[in-house]
């Protein structure tokens, strides 16, 4: 098992180098001059432009730029962004906010998605099941930005149940509305996946055998249907957490959440190579680690899967 985990962690190195190189090159190849864009319509003196170019190594060829970036990354000297803010400090503020949002959204979609999915699956073809299925289809079909604005208007402004925008002081309570919007779409998928899985496992031979043993219905459902049905759902949720950590650009934008999505969006607009690549690098790490955790959880849920061989 330890060997397996080590091997998986070692795989991070090529993945990390590959993704950073690719992203760095794409930013480098973006059309337009990022320094000129900083000044808008005004024309700064050439000496200022040269100084800025030199500060951000933009006067160097691509490979040198990338090399300097890697060196800085491994010496934990991330430098400053185009607004002269230290990148490390601004990311240190953004990531916890996004992590909070992601975890909150994940909890919402897991708890409600699995609960509704199990009930729908157990009552396949009944009224509850059909209602939930149609409702989930609506949630999937409506784009996030529509859902976001509707929730903001209805629950945030008109009913006043939650703060319509988050702003600088993000905490669990403030983030509830964006978390619900963010979780809703995946909630619908989790629900459908759980439902399909439960209704399939309900007809499994071992469930009938469990009933034949004299077990009560709740025990049959908990021990023999639920655990087996959660295996595909857990995989989906884990992969989803990685996605959520990337920050939801649209949702964070609507609710003014100072998270990674916002930062990334700004950095892309300004063609700030180093900031973008740092964010992506952290995300690559998050993805690799969550995927590893999911695989370990998977093996725990399904004993037929063993990694140490």
């Amino acid at each position: 098992m330890v060997r397996y985990i080590l091997r998986r962690l070692l795989q991070v190195i090529p993945v990390f180098l590959g993704t950073t190189l690719l992203v760095y090159y794409m930013v480098f190849a973006l059309p337009g001059d990022p320094i000129a864009a900083l000044f808008g319509d005004r024309q700064p003196p050439q000496s200022v432009i040269d100084a800025l170019r030199n500060q951000y190594n933009l006067d160097q060829p691509f490979w040198v730029q990338y090399g300097i970036f890697l060196k800085n990354l491994f010496t934990f000297n991330l430098g400053v962004d185009f607004t002269q803010q230290p990148i490390a400090a601004s990311l240190a503020r953004a990531f916890p906010v996004t992590a909070m949002l992601a975890v909150e959204a994940l909890i919402i979609q897991a708890v409600f998605g699995i609960a509704f999915g199990v009930f729908a699956g157990l009552r396949k073809g009944k009224l509850f099941d059909s209602t939930v299925l149609v409702a989930s289809l609506v949630v999937i079909a409506v784009p996030t930005f529509v859902l976001g604005f509707v929730f903001q208007l209805v629950f945030g402004v008109q009913l006043g149940w939650a703060k319509p925008t988050v702003g600088a002081n993000a905490d669990w309570g403030n983030l509830i509305l964006p978390a619900v919007v963010l979780g809703l779409v995946s909630f619908a998928y989790v629900l459908r996946l759980t439902r399909a899985s439960v209704s399939e496992n309900m007809n499994a031979d071992y469930v009938r055998t469990a009933t034949a043993k004299g077990l009560s219905r709740p025990r049959v459902v908990m021990a023999h249907i639920l655990r087996n049905s959660l295996i595909p759902v857990v995989t989906y949720l884990g992969a989803n957490l990685g996605g959520l950590m990337g920050g939801a650009i649209v949702t964070e934008g609507i609710f003014n959440v100072p998270g990674v999505g916002n930062k990334l969006f700004q950095a892309i607009q300004r063609s700030e190579g180093p900031t973008i690549v740092v964010i992506v690098s952290v995300l690559v790490l998050v993805f690799v680690v969550t995927n590893l955790l999911v695989d370990l959880l998977y093996a725990w849920l399904d004993p037929r899967i063993r990694y140490d061989q």
Binding site: D205, Y206, R208, A210, T211, A212, G214, H224, N228, P303
Partner: peptide, 21 residues
């Protein structure tokens, strides 16, 4: 109440009648 204690069952396919987990 009756299942297990009064009526037992040995099912057909040993491969699919035990819960794999």
């Amino acid at each position: 109440e009756l299942r297990g204690s009064h009526i037992g069952m040995v099912p057909q396919d040993p491969m699919s009648n035990l819960n794999p987990v």
